[in-house]
Design a protein around this nucleic acid. Structure first.
Ligand SMILES: [Zn+2]
Ligand SMILES: [Zn+2]
Length: 813
DNA sequence: AGCACGCCGACT
DNA sequence: GTCGGCGTGCTC
């Protein structure tokens, strides 16, 4: 019988493909290793899922041999590989696409080896596999030798002076400044004045920054209790019968099978602690006890929480034992991090969503901080939820999982109630005597506009800002809308300016004031009630927040030709301008995606911390990050915006946002104040947030969900259909819905089929969008229906329609 | 997804 | 006459 390998290839197909293992590779091809294989007239990089001696299940004449082995040591350890396969099955995602999420770049060394085997001749098609490493860089440094005075001129002299002043430099850097650097260096080297060296450049500075180690602080009783419970779980899972921690290189030798009989006792926790209750210290202790037991740990945080300050805190405890995985990493740095974990040199990884796939050696602990955060759900490609999958990966690896939050997700609370998670509470703020901020609701139906004239800056908010400024304290104004004005409306006919590719209103962005160019005389719209004289558009842009469209503000209404275009509504840009005008003596700044990339936002928050800003206006971005101790006032400008969305999670998200933003008021010794502006003060999300009653809200929300039959009371899968042609999309959606209704689980009403219907955003990037929602009490029937639909998707659906299965959808828009 | 093969319109 | 449009079939 031939030696056959199941290989996943990077194509959107759910099956693996069978290849024959050539005799020469017989002992070396192992699960998790990447291989080069011919697939439908091209050469692809695949991953071996399994190897066995057996007779082929398909026509043996179709089976091709593997072309080459890429990894001597499997790139994916057994634990990761089997986890990824289960993830693919759970989300009905093609196995090749899922594996791609976890694969490292290819090392240049490996490419060289393949070329030597003659496998990469001509068409070097490794798909999107990035190449990395093996790149040597030339460095030059001055020696101690001294030249005879006056013998050096021009660039040679300049280069030597620079090297003497600044120490060793990459030759490439010198060439940027001195065109002749290379020949000058050669001459200098011949005379012994300069030493040349070639070596691989150093990796990410994260790696080598020497960091002062901190001394673990005393824990308060609640922290100590939580840490002890986690430690006990780690002890139980790491104890008898477990193999000793493996040496580097040995990890993948063990089978993928789940660890020996799982000991009883809790292994997954919900750490429920208010802001400032010291969750991070509990995490640090948990990681320490995990490492002490010889196992690795993985920490996941929302992308925007992965700040230098947070990393510094982990680094202060674990030094070099920490790999940081973030989006700003170059391919080379990312690969270096990956390799350090894979090789067992580093055993702790911290990162955002994608860190879920980090090859942490002998994984013993996964921490998910701010587990309620929506950014853990990937909303494109493989639509996985990193928090849910963290629970799965931990379970499979025999590891402990800790989800932490000040405002736990309803899903996690439901898991606690079903006994799947053990709740650990940190009830008080750890080492600050600060009391909870006082929350005032401002009913916008009763309070009109303050002196600024904008109805969303009410008199109470205006007065509160005045008082804060007078006390030399700081304020944050939270408004979850970027841009200047969220809509542009014709003053004559009421026509709303929309994106030509999407069915959404375009947002007017003024951009920086300095950029404002005078408009053609006839072009300036007459000032209307929504566009006061000093805010007339000058050189701003209309932008679509859902596609890349950006264009000038039209001079005339696209519908009736009128010149009276009104800028309606309030975005952060306009709020900043209005506040600055109302409080001319205050230093006002703005923090949102438009003003700040990752580094800029850190800089703005730093300026805030240094007291160089009085009022900070911004979106979600003002919500996360390090303490801002002098902030005593937080204004939520429009609490209703988040609550009105057509999404069953709107209340939950609104509540989380309110609690989180309110947590920014009054840390340290100062009591804080929170003003929430709303037209709906009785809304539970607002009322419970105002009362600081998180358990109360969770309780009520979980009952509401049961009543309306939404998760966690039921399970959902959203079938997203889109097509350039509206009819094609609608037709595909109708077929899918009909098929779902007539499959056995649909007929038996074990699965409820809602739709087809147009998506709330009916057109996006030029594609018409439809959906079918599947709802079931049990997961089994839901999966059965989805399986039936994937069958239909293979042949019964117009190829111009795109169909995406979204299991456990989060964003319902 | 890619990448072939195949069968109908307007171009040298 | 052919160049090229993209409908559809298949990939171990
Ligand atoms: Zn009009
Ligand atoms: Zn658009």
């Amino acid at each position: 019988m031939p030696l056959l390998a199941d290989v996943a290839v990077p194509v959107p197909l759910s099956q693996a493909f069978t290849y024959e293992v050539p005799a020469a590779l017989a002992g070396e091809v192992r699960p998790g290793a990447r291989v080069l294989c011919e697939f439908h007239r091209r050469k692809l990089l695949g991953v071996v899922l399994a190897v066995s001696e057996r007779s082929a299940a398909i026509d043996p004449s179709k089976i091709k041999p593997l072309a080459a082995l890429v990894d001597a040591r499997p790139a994916l350890p057994a634990e990761l590989l089997s986890f990824l396969q289960e993830l693919a099955a759970y989300y009905f995602a093609p196995i090749g696409e899922v594996l791609r999420l976890a694969l490292p770049a290819i090392e240049r060394e490996q490419v060289r080896a393949l070329k030597a085997q003659g496998e990469l001749g001509g068409v070097l098609d490794l798909g999107r596999a990035k190449q990395v490493g093996g790149r040597k860089v030339a460095y030059a440094s001055a020696t101690d030798a001294v030249e005879e005075p006056g013998t050096l001129r021009g660039q040679a002299a300049a280069v030597l002076a620079l090297l003497r002043a600044n120490g060793e430099q990459p030759v490439a850097r010198l060439e940027e400044r001195y065109g002749n650097a290379r020949s000058a260096l050669k001459k200098l080297a011949e005379r012994g004045l300069v030493a040349l060296d070639e070596r691989e450049p150093p990796r990410d500075p994260f790696f080598r920054l020497p960091e002062e180690r901190d001394v673990p602080p005393e824990l308060n009783p609640a922290q100590a209790e939580a840490a002890a419970r986690i430690d006990a779980a780690l002890a139980a899972l790491s104890a008898p019968g477990r193999a000793a921690p493996s040496a580097p290189g040995g990890a993948e030798a063990r089978g993928a099978a789940p660890r020996e009989p799982r000991p009883a006792g809790p292994s997954a926790f919900l750490l429920f602690g208010v802001t400032g209750s010291g969750k991070t210290e509990v995490y640090l202790r948990a990681i320490k006890s995990c490492l002490d037991r010889g196992r690795g740990a993985l920490v996941m945080v929302p992308e925007i929480a992965l700040t230098p300050q947070l990393v510094a805190r982990f680094r202060a405890r674990f030094g070099d034992e920490l790999a940081v995985l973030h989006s700003g990493l170059s391919d080379a740095d990312r690969h270096a991090m990956w390799a350090s974990l894979h090789g067992g040199k580093v055993r702790v990884a911290i990162g955002a969503r994608s860190a879920l796939f980090a090859p942490v050696p002998d994984l013993g602990l996964i921490l998910v901080d701010e587990e309620h955060d929506g950014s853990f759900k990937q909303e494109e490609g493989v639509r996985y939820h990193a928090r849910d999958m963290a629970l799965l990966r931990a379970h499979r690896a025999g590891a402990v999982c800790v989800l932490g939050s000040a405002t736990p997700s309803i899903e996690s609370v439901a898991l606690v109630r079903r006994g799947k998670l053990v709740e650990l509470r940190l009830p008080e703020r750890a080492h600050r005597e600060a009391s909870l901020p006082e929350v005032t609701l401002v009913d916008l139906r009763r309070f009109g506009a303050g002196p600024s004239g904008d109805p969303l800056i009410s008199l109470p908010l205006h007065r509160a800002l005045e008082r804060t400024l007078a006390a030399k304290e700081q304020a944050i104004l939270f408004l979850n809308r970027r841009g200047f004005a969220p809509s542009v409306v014709c003053g004559s006919c009421g026509n709303l300016t929309t994106c030509s590719a999407c069915s959404v209103a375009l947002t007017y962005h003024r951009g920086r004031r300095r950029d404002a160019r005078p408009q053609a005389p006839a072009g300036a719209p007459a000032p209307g009630p929504a566009a006061p004289l000093d805010e007339r558009p000058q050189g701003g842009l209309l932008r679509c927040h859902y596609c890349d469209y950006a264009g000038p503000l039209p001079e005339r209404c696209g519908s009736c030709g009128s010149r009276t275009l009104l800028l309606e509504g309030l975005g952060t840009e306009r709020l900043e301008a209005t506040i600055a005008a109302s409080f001319p003596e205050a230093r006002v700044a703005r923090l949102d995606r438009d003003v700040a990339g990752k580094d800029r936002s850190q800089a703005i928050l730093a300026r805030m911390r240094e007291g160089k800003i009085d009022i900070l206006v911004g979106t979600q971005m003002v919500t996360k990050g390090h303490d801002l101790p002098n902030v005593t006032l937080v204004g939520v400008v429009n609490a209703d915006a988040a609550l009105g969305l057509p999404d069953f999670r709107a209340a939950e998200r609104g509540f989380q946002l309110l609690v989180q933003v309110a947590g920014r008021a009054g840390r340290r010794d100062r009591p804080g104040r929170v003003l929430i502006q709303t037209r709906n003060p009785e809304h539970p999300a607002i009322a419970f947030a105002a009362a600081h009653d998180v358990p109360g809200f969770l309780d009520r929300e979980i009952r509401d969900r049961e009543e309306v039959g939404y998760p966690p009371a039921t399970r959902l899968a959203l079938i997203r259909i889109d097509a350039v042609d509206e009819g094609v999309g609608r037709g595909a959606a109708a077929r899918l819905a009909a098929h779902a209704r007539t499959c056995p689980d649909g007929l038996a009403r074990r699965v409820e089929v809602l739709g087809p219907s147009a998506a709330p955003i009916a057109r996006l990037r030029g594609r018409y969008r439809f959906r079918v929602l599947l709802r079931a009490r049990e997961r089994g029937p839901l999966r059965g229906t989805l399986a039936a639909l994937t069958g239909l998707m293979r042949d019964g659906i117009d190829r111009n329609a795109r169909v995406i299965i979204d299991v456990d959808p989060v964003a319902m828009l």
